[in-house]
């Protein structure tokens, strides 16, 4: 049980994923919601790399993790641009108060 194997890495991925969802649900600030999304992407990456190591898939899992990192960078840039625009329009970024797409 204490011997570290595939299960340990998967459990870490599962816990990180749950914490990310918790952050997305409970935080009001849009930037904090983004942090939750980053946690979820990291959890997915841990699973990819763990299966790549223990499932004997060669480097394919690590390639998938690299692609996820690229997508996370693009997502963070776009999302923060949108959040900046929301702040310009509404003077706050609380996701529960912003219910209109237009002023």
């Amino acid at each position: 049980m204490l011997q570290v194997g595939l299960t340990h890495f998967l459990v870490i991925g599962a816990i990180l994923f749950s914490l990310g969802i918790y952050g997305i649900i409970t935080r009001k600030n849009a930037v904090m919601v983004l942090m939750g999304v980053e946690l979820i992407l990291n959890a997915a990456n841990i699973n990819f790399v763990a299966f790549s190591r223990y499932g004997n898939f060669g480097l394919n899992g690590q390639i998938a993790a690299l692609f996820v990192i690229v997508l996370a960078a693009a997502e963070a840039a776009i999302a923060l641009a949108i959040v900046l625009n929301i702040y310009k329009t509404y003077s706050n970024v609380n996701v529960d108060e912003i219910s209109n797409l237009k002023e």
Binding site: V4, Q62, A72, L80
Partner: peptide, 30 residues
């Protein structure tokens, strides 16, 4: 620990050096 050395460096460079700085900018600007 999962023998993904290159990915670890990419993680530090892209996430810590890029995405986290972007997020802190977002915090400061909003």
């Amino acid at each position: 620990l999962l023998a993904a050395d290159f990915l670890a460096i990419v993680q530090i460079m892209v996430y810590v050096g890029g995405i986290l700085v972007l997020i802190i900018f977002g915090v400061m600007l909003t």
